[in-house]
Design a protein around this nucleic acid. Structure first.
Length: 505
RNA sequence: GGGCCGUUAGCUCAGCUGGUAGAGCACCGGACUUUUAAUCCGUUGGUCGUGCGUUCGAGCCGCACACGGCCUACCA
């Protein structure tokens, strides 16, 4: 850390950071050296839980001795005795400090401490007049001086920009934030267990791809100096995971980041976390069933019941998930459309135009239907809903439905108006896959920046023979949004992408 | 990328019709030995996001830019 920031505040005697630095200097002059020998052996929440039922008399007679360390958050100084709240990794516990008990010098020193300082406390438990479990301090030591003023003790930190840029402050003063990320860890752990229990092997495949593939998306490009070649941050692990299936790893999964060089929104961060999993000798119907079991068990495990509240709506997981084809969904949410209209591009386009959906450059009825689906159906699919029977043209890695070459064995799962999962029976006909890649290359040449590249090494792998396989990707961040009722993906990602700001950080 | 909104003290926010900025918390000083948004008394603290313009005069009006939020577009 440089001192530059402090220089500008030297002019102001009472600048809070300056005052705190002055206190630190005084401490250092009397020998303070950022000590690291304190060993707290209790946590705030553990104490609250263990002694929830203990009365004042019980606590006084047992005199439970405790050692605790944490951040001093609110202080109530009353002359020769004080209370403050000490916040550690688990929660907050109140501490009572009396000059009689810790000594006048130590008490004077305590009065110099500031909100945000990290302290070590020894003492014993007691209950206050108001009945609050607290620590009666017999010793109190400053461990780390905090050099910046803290956010308002009551209003906290509201400004989203500050919350994301200084997430550590957000975590300190907004308890729900920490809860979201603890839940995130629990979700990851549960999902791993779920697949481990089903004989899946967790693998790590490259994050840097010589040929970006596995999804229709714009990649980030970087350059490897020693190899002198471009590398692409992966948009999906799909093609590598399927190589592993070819190699005989018949059940694999990977939980990791994907990167897409596209717009940001409440549902999109440039890097996001997915689980992708592949299972040989399974088809997309098997994965629908598996997904339903996974989500039902996950919701139960995380929430303790089968319902979640998301943006004021109740979403239920106990009933079987709805299953609709793309066309059925379009008809259901567009009552003015008839079945016969769906294959008539002129009537489709006229209808799209009439409801303000721009399809002027769209050339096939399949694509118009997907556009209509995206614009009129997706955000209305609040309850868990599987959508299947996707057109082949938008699914270059999916197996076509037998005897129906225009559509593929694929589904997507929508919950809370968001796409949560995408799955299909994998295309394992290498010649068909080569044709689909070629189509993507043609799209790219006619200006589609998101179209896929031709990946001959993947075709070669398929030529060795991939067992019939079904694969699926689930967006972990969006799942977290649902489980923690957060409206923005930035609130389930610790450090969401922001533009750099010269003022803070 | 487009539209709308926001940016005022460390934090949370007021600021009227254009007339040199206020509150609460925090901070600093004082009182106070069971408080808990502690209380009481007295202070301190501002390049009003940045720049240009209009005006006798701009936190307020206009333009440009920066950052953020929401909606939209694309994806998961």
């Amino acid at each position: 850390m440089t001192m530059s920031k402090n220089n500008s505040s030297d002019n102001h005697r009472d600048d809070q950071s300056h005052v705190r630095r002055g206190k630190l200097q005084a401490l250092q002059q009397s020998g303070y050296q950022y000590p690291n020998h304190f060993k707290p052996n209790h946590y705030a929440n553990e104490l609250h839980q263990r002694h929830e039922k203990d009365t004042s008399e019980t606590l006084d007679s047992h005199r439970h001795s405790v050692q605790l360390a944490g951040r001093m958050m609110t202080r109530r100084l009353m002359g020769k005795a004080s209370f403050f709240n000490c916040q550690d990794a688990t929660g907050t516990i109140q501490v009572y400090v009396r000059s009689n008990d810790i000594g006048q010098d130590a008490y004077d020193e305590f009065k110099q401490h500031d909100i945000g300082d990290i302290v070590y406390i020894e003492g014993h438990l007691f209950r206050t007049k108001m009945g609050e479990l607290s620590i009666y301090a017999t010793q109190l030591t400053l461990v780390v001086k905090s050099l910046h003023p803290f956010p308002d003790k009551f209003h906290g930190l509201n400004d989203p920009e500050l919350r994301y840029r200084q997430r550590y402050l957000d975590l300190i003063v907004n308890p729900v934030v920490k809860q979201v990320f603890v839940t995130r860890a629990a979700v990851m752990r549960f999902i791993r267990q779920f697949f481990d229990n089903r004989q899946y092997v967790e693998v790590d495949t490259p994050m840097m791809h010589p040929i970006p593939g596995g999804a229709v998306a714009k990649p980030f490009v970087t350059h490897h100096n020693a190899l002198d070649m471009p590398l692409y941050l992966r948009v999906a692990p799909e093609l590598y995971l399927k190589r592993l299936v070819v190699g005989g790893m018949e059940r694999v999964y990977e939980i990791n980041r994907c990167f897409r060089n596209e717009g940001l929104s409440t549902k999109h961060n440039p890097e996001f976390t997915t689980i992708e999993f592949y299972q040989a000798y399974a088809n997309y119907h098997d994965l629908m069933d598996l997904t339903e079991v996974l989500l039902r068990e996950l919701v139960l495990h995380i929430k303790g019941h089968m319902t979640i509240d998301f943006k004021g709506q109740q979403i239920g997981f106990s009933e079987p998930f709805k299953r609709l084809s793309v066309d059925e969904a379009i008809l259901q949410y567009n009552p003015n459309l008839k079945q016969a209209d769906l294959s008539d591009i002129v009537r489709l386009k006229a209808y799209a135009h009439s409801i303000g959906v721009d399809v002027t450059d769209v050339v096939s009825s399949d694509l118009v239907r997907m556009e209509l689906f995206d614009k009129t159906v997706e955000k209305k699919l609040i309850q868990p809903t599987f959508i299947d029977t996707y057109p082949t043209i938008v699914s270059p890695l999916s197996k076509t439905t037998i005897d129906q070459p225009d559509c593929v064995d694929r589904f997507e799962l929508f919950i809370g108006g968001m796409e949560i999962a995408n799955a299909f029976s994998e295309l394992n006909d290498p010649d068909d896959q080569a044709k689909r890649f070629q189509q993507q290359v043609n799209n790219r040449e006619s200006g589609d920046e998101e179209a896929m590249y031709f990946d001959q090494t993947y075709i070669t792998a398929l030529e060795y023979g991939m067992p019939p396989t079904a694969g699926e990707g689930i967006g972990i961040d969006r799942l977290l949004m649902l489980l923690t009722d957060q409206a923005s993906i930035r609130d389930v990602i610790l450090f969401p992408q922001l533009r750099p700001n010269t003022q803070s950080d």
